[in-house]
Nucleic acid binder design. Structure first.
Lengths: 295, 295
DNA sequence: GGTAGTTAATCAGTTTTACCGATTATTAAG
DNA sequence: CTTAATAATCGGTAAAACTGATTAACTACC
């Protein structure tokens, strides 16, 4: 064996930071040790993993090819280390989710996952679809749960579950007892919706095709709870994922409105890096995602 | 990482022979080295992989559980070692090109390159000469294909192929059957040309030396196709690279005009970062550039 | 254009690790 | 009881990994 796991760690940290000094800090070693470790690795095989010009380190073609393989190998090595340690723990699972999923699904999923699997540890990161995808691509997250569609050569995108948006108003709103809204009603309404760029807004825009330019978008807010409170306060009617509204509907603090001629359906997706090693923790999480149904 | 690949090798050899001496021979090391290597591994994790009954080593329960995982890991490590030494893979090649080259040459070059070289992947970025040069300098692109001249201490600028601009008009234009344009004609004409800063415009300006201030530049457009449509519509006469006009001339939708006293010749260049590691992918691409002739 | 700040590489020196040869202890077989 | 086989251990050495300091090349800010 002409290389060591340590050299792999250095390589991957350097690839991640594109900076030897920070890589060394991250691995708790001196900058000179990291530098020579990387040099040794390259010399052993007479290759270059980085382009160097002055102070810059830039992962080159070969480095980009080798990185996923090294990442997978090191993940396996770490899984084996856990096996050796007998702490049959699954390791820390880093999950990313978009806002709606993170607030209304993922937190409970995390809780039930951790109670199902003694010793499991899940870390949740909430961000928008693009940020989640970037972090999964960059090995900063193990799994992503997203709303938006996505196409990426290095990522597996798995259809996960179905979701529907619901249009709703306050119980005191004049339409609270209306059986159905027509397109004319939609045009007349004062809307309180999520900001452009969010997955919920994308789905809303898609559902409103044809009317979009003529809607009265009175407020664009970044948080689902803020939208619910705004609608409760009578500022207009809203449109959010059903999962964010279930409690409010049950309590009666908000009232669903029927809009049968519009399609509010969408899908949630699970994303994973194709070349990442899927240890037992990830496998169990995927299983959990499939079997999980919120009660 | 609290263990080494070497320790894994020792563990596996010992598990195979159930005999440290043989295992040590097999790994070309002393018995004592093998013994302490195995002891270190067990001590690090405070585990026992073997039952020791007198002189005999017997793989125990835990050892039997861990052996297959260790085998799998070491196999992967060896596969990765092969990847490190052979690096036959071409990887993703990031190519930048200016507008004219990108639209009329590079796309077909990419396609034929990828069909010639199984497994090659080329990404194309279209931008102006300065932007391409900056990205090559910054290691964001592996190769640049540009029209403008360039002088840069960190970049290799290689002459690539010859190109000629052509002056042209609509078939319905009064000059469509004129054999030659004089300088007086050029001054009288209504011109539709590319915007300043573009490589095509640089070449045009150079060709028009001496007349430049007095030309009627009726329209300055950023896209070759827009210029062609403007000239077709009779808005004036144009000047673009022949490669952008070949189809239109063949179809007869535009007509070339002869301007023998002016030199419309120019060169295309390949640019590369001097200090960049030129892997097999880049080398193959350069070869492809030299040999490629559009049919 | 000069100056302070970053950064990767390098060097000299030290610590740690890996390894060897020799020895010892334990066991099984004769 | 002796002998052969073997794993563990010990002392010493060579290799490696690492550190701190320095250097050289670049960046960014005046």
């Amino acid at each position: 064996m002409r290389y060591s796991l340590r050299q792999l760690e250095v390589f991957l940290a350097a690839a991640h930071f594109e900076n030897i000094t920070r890589a060394a800090e991250h691995l708790s070693m001196s900058q000179s040790a990291a530098s020579s470790s990387l040099r040794d690795l390259e010399q052993q095989f007479d290759i270059q993993l980085f382009d160097r010009v002055g102070k810059r380190l830039q992962l080159n073609e070969l480095g980009r090819v080798l990185r996923p393989k090294a990442e997978a190998l090191l993940d396996r090595a770490q899984a084996f280390e856990r096996d050796l340690s007998q702490h049959q723990d699954l390791g820390l699972l880093k999950v990313g989710a978009t806002l709606t999923i993170g607030n209304y699904l993922a937190v409970e999923m995390m809780a039930s996952f951790m109670s199902d699997h003694e010793g499991a540890d899940v870390q949740l990161k909430v961000a928008n679809t693009e940020a989640i995808a970037r972090m999964v691509e960059n090995y900063e997250l193990d799994v992503g749960l997203i709303e938006g569609e996505l196409q990426h050569p290095d990522l597996d995108v798995i259809q996960w579950r179905e979701d529907d948006l619901a249009v709703f108003c306050a119980p005191s709103h004049p339409w609270a007892n209306k059986t159905e809204l027509s397109d004319e009603d939609l045009l007349e309404a004062q809307w309180v919706v999520r900001e452009p760029g969010s997955g919920t807004r994308q789905a809303f825009d898609r559902a409103m095709q044809g009317l979009l330019g003529d809607l009265h978008l009175r407020h664009e807010l970044q948080h689902t709870e803020a939208i619910k409170r705004a609608v409760e306060a009578g500022l207009g009617i809203g449109c959010l994922s059903e999962i964010a509204l279930r409690d409010a509907f049950k309590r009666g603090s908000l009232v669903p409105l029927s809009v049968p001629q519009r399609n509010f359906h969408r899908r949630f997706y699970i994303i994973l890096h194709k070349q990442k090693y899927r240890g037992p923790g990830i496998d169990l999480w995927l299983e959990h995602c499939v079997s999980y149904t919120d009660s």
